[in-house]
Design a protein around this nucleic acid. Structure first.
Length: 867
DNA sequence: CGCTGAACTTAGAATCCCCTAG
DNA sequence: CTAGGGGATTCTAAGTTCAGCG
């Protein structure tokens, strides 16, 4: 370990004495020390390699039955989640309490904000939720007294955001704002509810991938029918002043110079300051109340630091060119071990061939691909041969791939695999530990004094490129990456990681605090692309931007009515570009399509919205569109959907006079589309619609479908909602190879059980008549059971059969649906956490360890939270 | 304004690993 | 005790977005 001597923060005592949460180091400005290798006395739940024990992921909420259960739960295990690392001065880094909190009574503040929140969001909530508001506020008020400041902060947090976005909304749409708000109030509740997404979900067919008729509430949205005008820039000035007024309630947010900047930048500033407020730090609180006090005191001392406000000015939103960190310490990356030649000879025209280690290495890469689909693809073999041929050299005996037989190598690899499998568990464990030891120091970085997990600290090993779909480069050799390929990014004062390969050195060292990567290298397959080493998803840097992503999506909720109204108007616009933008936006909104950037010829031929070809959309009279294209990862998108007639007609028009292969939206690309979206809402881009769509669908379905019942039933509801989202987003997975076999095995078992059941029924009949049971199928005599016992058995068997049937159906149902992707990337975790709190579902039933760590920032959300 | 480079999120497959049924 | 099923984790490809440049 080269580094540790130089830069080690002191582990702060008492600050972080427990288990989970990022380790926090209090550091003296003068002597910083490095941590890794010290094996961080404070273990960290985020380290998957660490002893599992009981992980209390970050303020994890385990809804208790106790009366105070739900509300208390949210406050009692709040974890130190430092959402805002990049605070300039170390001394202020640990400042967790915002001054705002200090200055205002948290109770009053809290209550007020919650109240505002409810008001604000009311019209988006179903009646049930509205009715709840009162009691929930009361609830809050009672425990606000004991609330940890962390909770306060987060509440302030969440609530803060809403008024801001609402303000933006109101101002943005100026005169219409009051109408907007009122209109919902005047509406019958049912209509209000309709404004969200039920119409959509209700009509999604379960089966896929065939023609889902996806219908969105879009058509029902009141704003569509109202006369709300397309937002004009001019009204936005109002927004600024409006905002300023309300901002005064929130000390510390500086927006002084905002008047002098152009509109676009103002809006940016707004979003920045919003994210700023958003990211108020959360305190870690131990389950034990006593340690909380200790911590709170500590935090207080930080919080008086006037540096805070200054440094917040530098805070990034996830936006760019902004400072992301102040200090960054890490150990670089770890390289795969050098190739170990095995000496197994492949055959060429039936004869063994001696290969150099380099040639053998690549041959082995190919050999082990035998069982994959790539072997059926000529492109793969062709590309492989091109690259391997170069290594072999012109005069090699091997002159073509067809005469190569890699079987010996393949077999050798298989047997090695087998050997590994056969190892005793102790041996395996020892091996694992060894590896862990080796990697330990690379696993962590210290960002602004907080120990954070690094995501992909292992340099990608050499291999054959496995592009998805019909990728033109599949099979090419991905050469080994050397230190000389790698640029390291690290804090100015941090020791430069020692290059782990003796005699070699890093390509470059940078100290760029506007980016979050720790290292990068050029992708050997496509040198103009980069491979980055980032922090893990559980890091606060990632958590912060994740939260911002969801806040942005929530903001869209306030704009969506007007946006829909605007594009609906443009469906018939004579300006073709505008018309195309309108239709494209409609598709993105309604179908959650991706933006669709242009792609190079050396990539797989896939499309998104803007790059749809005319053959990807087939109109079906009178007003249906059939979509069929390959999207990201060459995943097939097949969907037939009813659209508004003007859209249908517009599509017909766009297709007119075009050849297959031509762009449907020929006047459009993602930058134009996004530029337009940005005019409608600050920070709005195409992808926000996907997040919005997914999250609001979950929120809606959970709140519509959750019934009283046991936890298992509630989980079914959750999974069902999750599945709908996955279908909307077209998240697919390949059917496992053994699926068919598994299904028939299950069928078999069910049949067997059914036979048993029938036999039992016969026996019961006979038993009731006082007759002994018949001989069993294998001819043995059975015990003479009384009718009660038989009935019991019958009931058991029936239950068993039903369960198996259910499992089987679910399995079949989900065989092509990937639930995980939306959970990880699209569903605002606060929806889930809040729902769990409300319905006393343990959060671990929904989020696994990684997700709990990733969503640490969402754990202390108010149970009333709605997306 | 379009193009490219850069940085970051999103994605499915592969692999690991742990549990359970037999 | 062991196979295999399935969830968790790892891996890295494939997207989106944005800034900066000419």
């Amino acid at each position: 370990m080269a580094v540790e001597a130089s830069d080690k923060p002191h582990v702060s005592d008492g600050f972080d004495d427990d288990d989970d949460g990022p380790v926090i180091f209090k550091r003296s400005t003068t002597s910083k020390r490095n941590v890794q290798g010290s094996n961080a006395p404070t273990s960290n739940a985020q380290g998957s390699s660490l002893p599992k024990g009981k992980i209390i992921p970050s303020g994890m909420v385990l809804p208790k039955k106790s009366s105070e259960g739900i509300s208390r739960a949210s406050t009692s295990h709040v974890k130190a989640y430092l959402v805002n690392p990049p605070i300039a001065k170390p001394s202020s880094e640990r400042k967790i309490l915002s001054d705002a909190k200090e200055e205002s009574s948290s109770i009053i503040h809290l209550t007020k904000n919650n109240w505002e929140d409810s008001e604000d969001e009311l019209d988006n909530k179903p009646l049930s939720a509205r009715l709840k508001v009162n009691s929930n506020n009361a609830n809050k008020a009672t425990f606000a007294v004991v609330k940890k400041s962390s909770e306060d902060s987060d509440n302030v947090d969440d609530d803060d955001d809403i008024p801001l976005s609402a303000r933006l909304k109101n101002c943005n749409f100026g005169t219409s704002s009051s109408k907007y708000d009122n209109s919902n109030q005047k509406k019958p509740i049912s209509k209000v509810h309709k404004g969200s997404h039920d119409g959509f979900n209700a009509s999604i067919k379960q089966e896929r991938p065939s023609t889902l008729s996806v219908k969105r509430p879009l058509d029902n949205t009141d704003s569509l029918h109202s006369s709300i005008k397309k937002p004009k820039l001019s009204v936005l000035d109002a927004s600024i002043s409006d905002k300023k007024v309300s901002m005064k309630l929130e000390p510390k947010v500086e927006d002084d110079d905002i008047d002098d900047v152009p509109f676009s930048q103002r809006m940016k500033k707004l979003s920045e300051s919003s994210s700023l407020k958003k990211s108020k730090n959360i305190i870690k609180v131990n389950k034990a109340g006593s340690s909380f006090k200790k911590q709170a005191t500590k935090f207080k001392s930080f919080s008086n630091n006037s540096e805070y406000s200054k440094s917040t000015k530098l805070l990034p939103s996830s936006g760019d060119g902004q400072k992301k960190w102040t200090t960054l310490v890490h150990n670089g990356v770890i390289f795969p071990p050098p190739y170990q030649p095995h000496g197994v000879k492949m055959l060429y025209k039936g004869k063994p061939v001696v290969l150099t280690p380099e040639q053998e290495e690549v041959a082995t890469m190919f050999a082990v691909m035998r069982d994959t689909d790539y072997m059926q693809k000529d492109k793969f073999k062709e590309n492989f041969w091109t690259d391997w041929g170069k290594l072999l050299g012109k005069n090699n005996v091997i002159q073509n791939l067809d005469d190569c037989d890699f079987t010996p190598i393949y077999d050798w690899c298989q047997s090695e695999k087998e050997k590994k499998k056969q190892m005793s568990s102790e041996e395996k464990k020892a091996l694992k530990e060894e590896r862990a030891k080796l990697e330990e120091k690379y696993m962590w970085a210290i960002v602004d004094g907080v120990k954070e997990k690094v995501g992909n600290f292992r340099v990608e090993p050499p291999g054959l490129f496995r592009g998805r779909g019909e990728h033109p480069k599949m099979g090419k050799l991905k050469r080994r990456i050397r230190p000389n390929d790698i640029t390291i990014n690290i804090g100015k004062d941090a020791p430069i990681p020692e290059c782990p390969i003796p005699g070699e050195s890093w390509k470059d060292i940078r100290h760029d605090d506007t980016v979050t990567w720790l290292a990068f290298w050029n992708d050997p397959i496509n040198p103009k692309l980069f491979k980055y080493v980032f922090l893990a998803a559980s890091s606060s840097l990632k958590g912060q931007s994740d939260k911002e992503k969801y806040e942005k999506a929530r903001m869209l909720k306030d704009y969506i009515g007007n946006i829909r109204a605007a594009y609906t108007k443009d469906f018939t616009c004579r300006d073709i570009t505008k018309q195309q933008i309108a239709v494209a936006t409609y598709l993105i909104d309604k179908l959650a399509l991706r933006a669709g950037n242009e792609k190079d010829d050396d990539e797989a031929d896939t499309v998104g919205c803007c790059t749809l070809k005319i053959e990807n959309v087939t109109p079906e009279a009178p007003n249906k569109l059939q979509f069929n294209f390959l999207g990201k990862d060459s995943i097939k998108y097949e969907n037939t959907v009813e659209v508004e007639l003007p859209v249908y007609n517009a599509i017909l028009k766009f297709q007119n006079d075009k050849q297959p292969g031509n762009d449907l939206f020929d006047m459009l690309d993602t930058s134009k589309l996004n530029a337009h979206l940005k005019e409608l809402m600050p920070g709005l881009t195409a992808k926000v619609f996907r997040t919005f769509n997914a999250s609001i669908t979950l929120d809606d379905m959970l709140n519509k479908d959750t019934k009283d019942g046991d936890v298992a039933e509630k989980i079914v509801v959750y999974n069902h909602a999750n599945k709908q989202v996955a279908i909307i987003c077209n998240h697919q997975r390949s059917v496992s190879k053994s699926h068919t076999a598994q299904m028939s095995r299950l069928t078999e078992k069910i049949d067997e059980l059914q036979a048993v059941l029938n036999e039992l029924k016969t026996d019961l009949d006979r038993a009731r008549k006082g007759k002994p049971p018949l001989k069993s199928s294998d001819g043995k005599t059975k015990k003479n059971l009384n009718p009660e016992a038989l009935e019991k058995k019958i009931a058991q068997t029936t239950t068993k059969i039903q369960k198996m049937q259910r499992d089987m159906n679910a399995k079949e149902d989900l065989k092509t649906v990937a639930l995980g992707t939306s959970k990880i990337n699209y569903l605002d975790p606060r929806i889930t956490v809040a729902w769990c709190k409300r319905h006393e579902v343990p959060i671990e039933k929904i989020f696994n360890k990684s997700l709990l760590a990733k969503f640490a920032w969402a754990m202390d959300v108010d149970p009333d939270f709605r997306f």
